[in-house]
């Protein structure tokens, strides 16, 4: 780690000001991505602005047909929330499979989606459920939020404050973990929503994306068979030690099929 200043604002306004006045500052949430990066000296921020002390940033509520989760909410709190389990069990299930207990007790929803790791789990839920991402300056639609590998629509200094997940009719998340890291090698989130069927895939490509052919097929018949024979092209998929593009493409179909079968 290089040296940095540690700042802990009490409000979003204060956080914003600190960000503007501190050169190359970074927000710190659960630290589960940022701290390892710093330890390896892969980043050298002048200041860390810990948003963990800001009142109201963490919490889960049910409002207007949606589950609204504060950006500072820990993965574990989503996993065990009675409200989430009742309304969107797939989301609680997803959160319960992120990393290990230590990671789940520190890592946050806001940190996960702001970071937009191509193998992270949450982005698939945000995209498949058509969630709204509320920030310090606006509301961003899920379809506009994830713009590329580790890239989002967030502007400099913009803080995610909460994510509103519309409650679907049915949904399920099927994760095929990377054997080493246990991040998603392929994760498929399938949701039957008022606005139609949405299928979001994480882990397979450089950024979470929607499988439109599957969505079209499931709109006609929401059954495992509807997607079982849809072949995904490996063309744009990731290849690494643990899974070639071809294998990942195959897994997208298998995980989608299993997610449809499991959807509740």
């Amino acid at each position: 780690m290089y040296q940095f200043n540690y700042l802990r604002p009490k409000s979003l306004d204060e956080a914003k000001k600190l960000y503007e006045n501190n050169g190359d500052a970074k927000f710190l949430a659960g630290g589960q991505t940022l701290i390892p990066t710093l330890k390896q000296r892969l980043a050298q921020p002048t200041a860390l602005i810990d948003i963990g002390g800001i009142a109201g940033l963490a919490g889960i509520k049910v409002a207007g047909g949606a589950i609204v989760i504060g950006a500072g909410t820990r993965h574990n709190d989503v996993a065990i929330s009675a409200d989430v389990k009742k309304s969107i069990p797939a989301l609680a299930h997803l959160a319960s499979h992120i990393g290990d207990p230590a990671v789940r007790h520190m890592g946050t929803l806001g940190g996960s989606i702001a970071n937009n790791d191509p193998a992270a789990d949450y982005p698939s839920a945000v995209l498949a459920l058509g969630a709204d991402i509320k920030t310090t300056s606006r509301t961003i639609k899920a379809d506009d939020f994830f713009t590329g590998m580790f890239e989002t629509a967030l502007d400099e200094g913009e803080i995610v404050t909460e994510v509103s997940f519309p409650i679907p009719e049915k949904a399920a998340y099927m994760k095929f973990p990377n054997p080493a890291s246990r991040y998603a090698m392929v994760g498929v989130f399938v949701a039957k929503t008022k606005g139609g069927v949405r299928v979001a895939v994480t882990g397979a490509a450089s950024c979470v994306y929607r499988e439109s052919a599957m969505e079209a097929a499931l709109a006609k018949a929401f059954t495992p068979d509807a997607v079982a024979n849809i072949k995904v092209s490996p063309g744009n998929l990731n290849s690494d030690l643990h899974g070639s593009a071809e294998y990942r493409a195959h897994l997208v179909t298998v995980m989608a099929k299993r997610a449809v079968a499991a959807a509740t």
Partner: peptide
Amino acid sequence: LLTGSYMDYTM
């Protein structure tokens, strides 16, 4: 070394 951490070396 492609397997230089637990992200890639499966313990």
